[in-house]
Design a protein around this nucleic acid. Sequence first.
DNA 1: CGGGATCCGTTACGATACTG
DNA 2: CAGTATCGTAACGGATCCCG
Lengths: 211, 211
Amino acid sequence: MPGKTYDQYCGIAAALDRVGDRWTLLVLRELAFGQQRFTDLKAGLPGIATNLLTERLRALEADGLVEQRELPPPAARTVYALTHDGHRVLPVLRALSAFGQPFLGEPQEGRVRHQVAASALTTRFDAASARDACLTVLLELDGHDVVVGVDDGQLVRPGPGMREDVRVSGSAAAMMRWVRGSSLADVEGELEVSGTRAAVRTFEKVFDLSR
Amino acid sequence: MPGKTYDQYCGIAAALDRVGDRWTLLVLRELAFGQQRFTDLKAGLPGIATNLLTERLRALEADGLVEQRELPPPAARTVYALTHDGHRVLPVLRALSAFGQPFLGEPQEGRVRHQVAASALTTRFDAASARDACLTVLLELDGHDVVVGVDDGQLVRPGPGMREDVRVSGSAAAMMRWVRGSSLADVEGELEVSGTRAAVRTFEKVFDLSR
DNA sequence: CGGGATCCGTTACGATACTG
DNA sequence: CAGTATCGTAACGGATCCCG
């Protein structure tokens, strides 16, 4: 922490004691995209000092939210990943993302990370409309695949090997524009949405995108 | 901010640029309980320096999340309150509260703020089960009234003058214990729940309390 | 090159004293 | 009651260096 613990009997204070430090929630955001090497994290967090990144990772490990994993030689040795407990921050990240969206300006082509566009999409997930829905969506943004799943009305990170019901292809900026309120017609030519009519309908309902 | 803005095109980064500083989210928590005077805020945030509290309030005002209101003379002059925009942080506070609950120890009688117990309750709200539900709950915790409402499947802060469907009376610590997983039988004698059978059933369903 | 550790100037925070 | 002022300390930012 900077300073010290808030030391209050309150869930919010307890949460901030773990993840309230500068950079910590952004580190967790990076790990929410999947396991990352130290260097990947540094690249995704422009401006962070290496010693701070180290310290934040150690603190998150100590709290059981993040763990180091050793990978077989063919790849870089060690990666960081969210633990089972660590996945419980995802709703916090989603709420922050939703809160922060209105502060963002117009997305500029080529300056939107594909994971950020995907995260902006999940921001619009509406549990009430998703009742009992099951759906796998493959986003192909600037050539990168991101899978978003809805299972039994819950937003999930699906494992690989799922066959997608809906595929959305295009630039991350276009996806961002759609999510931010443009109608699909407005981003036509930039985004291609494919899948059965029913699946696409479910997709638009669950993420409140039918405009 | 400490340091400076993260300056990333990302909702989470933009959110943290506004509310990511130390104490800021706890200031917003206090205001989520209702409008507060400077001194009330200070009392609810043990350990904060007065200059920091001032600075945080000014920054939140500049971002349009908090506003100062002048009250008619009979009371203390000026209070701080969330603006319309500022109410959009409530889901962030709820997500943080839910994330932080498991880190809290057993509640001790007399050491739980009634608002914290109420906030812990809202943590358990399940939008999927609340579909179309309408309900007003009056919590009477340690003698303080807190109203929690569900309208059309959404969690709301109801205005005054609503007649309650369910009333829960007892200590904040007992409420906390119930919310944390005890069955109603376990807190029997400490909590009194009244209302029509149907209303109580809805209450328990919507907050997943039937154990 | 990936994964850090070290050092140092700058900034923010914490504590308390003081004022309209 | 509602802040402002001051000041020592801890945390951060940036760069550099180190090691396998």
